[in-house]
Amino acid sequence: MSTTVLPDAPPADIAPPPARRRPRATLVGAVAIVVVLLGGLSVPYVITDTYTMGLALEAAMLGLPALGIGFLARHLGLISLGHSAFFGSAAYSVGIAVNRWELGLTAAVGFAVVVGAAISLLMGILVVRSSGMGFLMLTLALSMALWQLALQTSFRPLTGAHDGLLISAGNDASFLGLGPADVQNPGLFWPMVWVTLMLAALVLWLVGRSRFGVLLEGIRENEERMRFSGYDTFLPRLAAFVLTGVVASLGGALFAVNAGYVSPDILGFTRAGDTLIAVLIGGPASLAGPLVGTALFVWAQANLNFGGNLHLFTGLALIAVLVFMPGGLTGAVQRLSRRLRRGGRR
């Protein structure tokens, strides 16, 4: 298990460069996301071996909670350990809906997202008033509570407790036109996940650049002055928390459909920590950072796991990033490009 000492307040590098309101930049970003969305659909044609494709799919699914964590860090300065819990809860919800109530996969995913939204709403009411270390620890505590809940022996019929949950969707099941074998084929399932990921990125991008995004920035910068300026500061924080919770839940629901099995590890501390580490390595200051970090993390897990030293490498990578590039990889790239541009002008 990787243990990390996290700063009480997010480092200054997490805060994005000052957002002057530029509608054109918003549009450029949105168009870029759409272009990446379309381009990414070709991934299954480029990556032909199933193993690598499986890794790409996993990275894309884990990218959804990472996007959510990045959004909260960027716009509210809040570092969450709770988003893997929404991911996990949604995955369990798919399994329970399919196994117990014989819901179709599509309906089960819908149900799972509703559950994820409900859980993030309840958790949000309890945690969004806190900040810094308090927020981090509260989200962790509530995640651990969910994990314990899933492991309860009395819930075995529902969650499978320590055995996990095998999802038996039946041979005639279909998810948006894909059969039960298709959803487990990474190449065939890819478009579903990729489009979801990119649409979530687009929504978060537009929300972050909207008036609501300005409000969140105001709260992040000076919550008290926002109240003294007549603004409610609780509901906007709650709304942002639930929005990112829904995004994370989408990832978990798709993950369950693809894997056909939910392990209790999905709610565990290691998963929560790993998700956050991936975000920090990629750099939460940009929209792409958490996705880059997650992709790198999934790749490293698959390729550096020799001699049982995986977490040694994870720890070293995290130390290197936090010490030498506190804004993460994308933060370092941004600084470099800014420096190059400034140098070019002189």
């Binding site: 000052p18 957002a19 105001g218 300026s229 007549g230």
Partner: peptide, 24 residues
């Protein structure tokens, strides 16, 4: 107003005044 300057440091002067003016 506040004794310890209480502004929105990351925002431009115009952006924060407009933000407050949207509410008031």
């Amino acid at each position: 107003s506040f004794q310890r300057t209480s502004v929105f440091s990351s925002m431009t002067v115009r952006d924060q005044l407009e933000m407050v003016a949207r509410r008031n």
